[in-house]
Design a protein around this nucleic acid. Sequence first.
DNA 1: AAAGAGAATTGTAATAAATACAAAATTAAA
DNA 2: TTTAATTTTGTATTTATTACAATTCTCTTT
Lengths: 138, 138
Amino acid sequence: MKKQIKDIVEYLVKHNIKPSYPRIKILEALIEKDSHPNVDEIYNSLLKDAPTLSKTTVYNTLNVFAEAGIVKVLIIDGKEARYDIDTIEHGHFKCDNCDNITDLNISIDDKIISELQGFKIKEKRVYCKGICNKCLSI
Amino acid sequence: MKKQIKDIVEYLVKHNIKPSYPRIKILEALIEKDSHPNVDEIYNSLLKDAPTLSKTTVYNTLNVFAEAGIVKVLIIDGKEARYDIDTIEHGHFKCDNCDNITDLNISIDDKIISELQGFKIKEKRVYCKGICNKCLSI
DNA sequence: AAAGAGAATTGTAATAAATACAAAATTAAA
DNA sequence: TTTAATTTTGTATTTATTACAATTCTCTTT
């Protein structure tokens, strides 16, 4: 279920993000890995191509992406943030054993809207935790 | 919507938790505040009654409670954990402005069960973020 | 009541994710 | 080319949480 983005540079520009080399590389990494990586995974996977890359840049860039709405920051355990390039509303399942995050095809029912009369909703999130099928079958 | 627990000690014992003074006090604080407090709020609110209380004890105790299933740990922002004494399945709304967390009467639809065939689900969570009605009306 | 074992509490130190910040580097504009 | 603006980098800082060992408490057994 890899996100289809033909032209990385164009995609960044379209979202008012200057397409610098680190930004292109970080976006590429996010598209490449559909595993909802954390900062370290992204950082480490790019060190070959961008040896001078700083981890701060990865943090900065992901924040820029989040501000621009092209990544979703997944907070599930509190230990670390995970990043999702797929911005269509959906849920997640995180395995307590392998830490993998898989997508769930789910959206929050509109029933809640009635409960949140007069509230401004910026974000709706759904996730489950447990043990994934792969880990269970080992 | 304050949780009704008649006998604190009995409630702890029933869940195989030795009712020590700090544990009783921390449970009382959780029931008293239905604001989904964080560790610091709990700690500070108890310093009068328990001047020797250590913050580590608050952490330990909340972990004990979570293990025993009598509190839910809410991870919404990643900045800090919030604690909910209400263990019935429901969702939350966190205000970006006042940091208040309110309850939502919502449960995850069983549709996801079909997507998670062969998975062991331990936890289902729903939350929204935005600006609450009080903050909007200021 | 005293002793001893086991459990809980405490305080300090350590861990680690994320941010602050200022200097250096890069890019864009004039 | 010079200048201005933006981005990147590295280090230092912040802060929530855990690790851990020492102390205190509790409960049982003598």
